[in-house]
């Protein structure tokens, strides 16, 4: 039976760490900013839920401030150009869906994929974070579960009419997530986050959300592997 190696101590002030952190921190800040904008847009598309969505948007804006403070705490300047490019495909797909009034696709991208991505990344990050960032991330991840829950509830209530669009949107967007994970894997590892753990945690959160909405285990497996196949293509 192999033994587990004790984790190497992380030097949060090393140039290597700060270099990787400049991109990861930027992704998190951009992700929260993107989420806030997306919930504002969703509030326009879903007027009966406008108040709730406005609250979610405010929460995301608060998260952005928190993560900006994490970067400042380590004297790191976030590489926002990198982050904007990192999110550009998902951002583009959300904008197209919103312009077409496709609420289901918008919810899948923001309330399921981005939220599950955030939850998994934050959960994997927390045990390796510096003290300042850990406290902030712990409080953020609690909120993100609520956001995932909003999307789940609405899609569950509209499951039959939304199912086909969800499957299509999944195929088109999940592949982007796998590519995003690949892009960030090396930097994440510097921060103590292993790619396979990120993938597993994302898949758990995303699959659970899909099952909560109404998909069967088999359907969710098909959806997850469809995303993988599209990423490999």
């Amino acid at each position: 039976m192999p033994q587990l190696e004790a984790p190497a101590a992380i030097d949060y002030q090393s140039e290597t760490y700060k270099d990787a952190y400049s991109r990861i921190n930027a992704i998190v800040i951009e992700g929260e900013d993107e989420a806030a904008s997306n919930y504002v847009r969703l509030a326009e598309l879903m007027p009966t839920h406008a108040e709730e969505l406005a609250d979610l948007a405010k929460m995301e804006a608060r998260h952005k401030k928190g993560f900006t403070a994490c970067g400042k705490n380590l004297n790191v300047t976030p590489d926002m150009d990198f982050a904007k490019k990192f999110f550009s495909d998902l951002h583009g797909n959300f904008q197209v869906a919103a312009a077409g009034g496709n609420i289901v696709t918008c919810l899948l991208i923001q309330a399921l994929i981005i939220e599950a991505f955030a939850i998994s990344a934050y959960n994997v990050y927390i045990p390796h974070a510096d003290d300042f960032a850990r406290k902030i991330t712990e409080s953020v991840v609690k909120d993100e579960y609520l956001h995932l829950n909003f999307g789940e509830q609405w899609l569950k209530a509209n499951f039959e009419s939304a199912k086909a669009e969800l499957e299509r949107a999944n195929r088109e967007n999940l592949a982007i997530v796998w590519r995003m994970l690949d892009e960030v894997a090396a930097d994440a590892l510097v921060l103590g986050m292993e790619k396979e753990a990120l993938m597993e945690d994302f898949t758990i959160a995303y699959q659970e959300a899909l099952q909560n909405i109404g998909f069967t285990t088999r359907e969710t497996l098909r959806m997850l592997t469809a995303g993988l196949a599209a990423a490999a293509a």
């Binding site: 984790p7 959960n123 994997v124 927390i126 103590g192 292993e194």
Partner: peptide
């Protein structure tokens, strides 16, 4: 801090 990365 746990050694089990990914498990909070």
């Amino acid at each position: 801090m746990g050694w089990c990365s990914g498990l909070n």
